[in-house]
Nucleic acid binder design. Structure first.
Length: 565
RNA sequence: CGGGGCGUAGCGCAGUUUGGUUAGCGCGCAGCGUUCGGGACGCUGAGGUCGGCAGUUCGAAUCUGCCCGCCCCGACCA
């Protein structure tokens, strides 16, 4: 490809709208163009990189027996109502009507359609196991798209669906896919870690995410300093620090004028926050819920949502709390009734807690569970924090940030039961099919690859996903001897089947070299009057400091051999 | 959805506080010439509904109201 003809221009200044590095570099290099919030066009270079990633994914999916197919973006809303996932996705689901006023959705994912498809085509255990995948555009009306390609509303995703006869077979498939995913990230130049994850709106039993560890990542990962436990913070468990051991004392009311927060309470009474009980009110699908947790801990809303099995969860407003006859700021599990009470097990770690008195300006000392109050649900709803104990081995937990580059789920029979996808086993008995699903956001993977592979000058493409392998960069293209040598070398390289970006522009060296660094192809070849004189060409790998001079004669063959490795 | 910031040429910005000729600058773009191993220089030139609508005013990029869009933090998010 001749750079002079390439659609898409590099920018000298970084567009001010971009905050994170992959976003800045993709814009600056002319690889993407914004259309609206979270909606991008891919220009030729960006598109080539994206397609390279797709092909790597295809190869790895095919290698484990996956079969590629294609399903529509446009789907009847009815199908989503059957699994109630129209509710689960809520506002993130793009909906529209056709000319007959039929309700349609722009698919955010394809479990419904594929389950329906498999239902029609699988009858027997002999048809299983089955691995089907597609690379397709998906739509999600994200509340806040961000970070360039990191979180967008229209994106390309590879999703693989697995169909097995039983739990055990699913486990085998699951491990096989995890293996393929590891190879994919590795080939894309991305070190990834597998972490336990929440399964969110998709439901299902078990789920793991592939995280690329990066400061710019949206996700918080909690991992053990000793063993291999690691989990997304929204899912992570931990051993909380224990409270003090002491004799349980009788209840005692204390006046606490003006004290509203846990912070103020601890200061006012001169006790640690871990000696208090925090009370929080939530509205779960509209129902007011009382939540208690030890004062030094925070509520993990994902866990709480899962525990309550609700779709919509938010903090209750002061008004809602007041209407229920309760006092925010001095609420207490003591004597509270007519409302669902949920508590974190941390309320049993320690004794003689200080809790609210359910009236203003007062608290109660020496509160103990279950002596003084009962709860309806005692379940882990606490955020795990660095410094706490690993749930497996007890060692110290650490925290880091990561980009979610892939997500795999064991779905069980959620979809197959609702959409009636069954098979007949060896003994003639009908069972629902066991499913798994496995997704990779390709644009996000592209962005993650840049986040991990760049320097202050620009992108450093990992070879397998680079838009072109070679950046042929002749300086002084207006000199006939340079131009003709460059043209010849370009032809030779293309003839060897190499992917070459040929900067045939007549531009100053500074411009050409800086563009080469910005665009970031793995190998840069320089021709100039100097190298022509010695019948040589300069060879430099992007990301390495040292250049090498090789003879012009046979250079194309040598490159071919280099890339064949 | 809550909080904050921003919207003036393809990109980066000034001008808005205190309304007043033809709205500026740098980069980029076009032409000519000189340069040529890390974003060269000179000359000439093109390019703008000042996000939109309405209002105030003799006069609005500038003041007022409403709306739209984009970015960031949070909530949210397979």
């Amino acid at each position: 490809m001749r750079l002079s003809k390439l659609f898409g221009k590099t920018l000298r200044q970084t567009p001010s709208e971009a905050e994170n590095i992959s976003h800045q570099l993709l814009l600056k290099a002319g690889m993407i163009h914004p259309v609206a919030a979270g909606i991008y066009s891919y220009l030729p270079l960006g598109w080539r990189a994206l397609r390279k990633i797709e092909n790597i994914i295809r190869e790895e999916m095919d290698a484990i027996g996956g079969q590629e197919l294609m399903m529509p973006v446009l789907q009847p809303l009815e199908l989503w109502e059957q699994t109630e996932r129209d509710v689960a996705f809520g506002q993130s689901l793009f909906t529209l009507s056709d000319r007959r006023d039929r309700k349609l959705v722009l698919a955010p994912t394809h479990e419904e359609v594929i389950t329906e498809l498999v239902r029609r085509n699988v009858q027997s255990y002999r048809d299983l196991p089955l691995l089907l995948y597609q690379i397709q555009t998906k739509f999600r009306d994200e509340a806040r798209p961000r970070g360039g390609l990191m979180r967008v509303r229209e994106f390309t995703m590879k999703d693989l669906y697995s169909f097995d006869t039983d739990e055990e077979a699913v486990n085998t498939t699951y491990q096989k896919v995890i293996g393929a995913y590891k190879r994919i990230y590795e080939r894309c130049g991305l070190p990834s870690v597998v972490v336990e994850a929440d399964s969110g709106a998709i439901g299902g039993k078990e789920s793991h995410e592939f995280m690329v560890i990066a400061e710019s990542g949206e996700e918080q990962v909690i991992h053990c300093s000793k063993c291999d436990y690691s989990a997304n913070a929204e899912r992570a468990e931990s051993m909380k620090l224990p409270g003090e051991e002491e004799e349980a004392l009788p209840l005692e009311e204390v006046a606490t004028p003006g004290v509203k927060t846990i912070e103020e309470l601890a200061n006012f009474l001169g006790i640690p926050k871990s000696k208090t009980l925090k009370a929080v009110f939530y509205a779960a699908d509209g129902e007011l819920i009382f939540v208690a947790i030890r004062g030094d801990l925070e509520v993990n809303e994902v866990k709480l949502k899962n525990a309550l099995k609700c779709h919509d969860l938010r903090l209750a407003s002061d008004e809602e709390v007041r209407e229920a006859g309760l006092v925010a700021g001095s609420a207490s599990p003591l004597g509270i009734g007519g409302i669902k009470r949920v508590a974190d097990p941390s309320i049993t770690l320690g004794v003689n807690f200080v809790a609210g008195a359910n009236k203003p300006d007062a608290h109660v000392k020496n509160v103990n569970h279950p002596r003084d109050f009962a709860v309806d649900l005692l379940v882990d709803i606490a955020i795990a924090q660095a410094g706490e104990g690993c749930p497996r081995c007890g060692s110290k937990l650490l925290s880091t940030r990561g980009i979610e580059a892939g997500h795999v789920f064991k779905l069980g029979t959620f979809f197959s039961e609702r959409l009636d996808a069954t098979f007949i086993d060896r003994d003639g008995v009908e069972h629902p099919i066991f499913m798994g699903c496995y997704g990779i956001g390709i644009g996000r993977l592209l962005a993650a690859a840049i986040e991990q592979n760049h320097d202050e000058k620009g992108i450093i493409w990992p070879l397998p996903i680079a838009p072109y392998q070679v950046h042929l960069c002749p300086l002084s293209m207006d000199k006939p001897e340079v131009a003709s040598a460059a043209e010849r070398l370009y032809l030779d390289l293309e003839q060897e089947g190499l992917e070459v970006l040929f900067d045939d522009r007549i531009e100053s060296p500074g411009v050409k070299l800086n563009d080469a660094d910005l665009l970031g192809m793995p190998l840069r070849l320089i021709l100039s009057p100097r190298t022509i004189k010695s019948q040589s060409v300069e060879w430099k790998r992007r990301g390495e400091k040292e250049a090498e001079i090789i003879p012009l004669e046979g250079a194309a063959k040598r490159l071919k051999a280099f890339f064949a490795l």
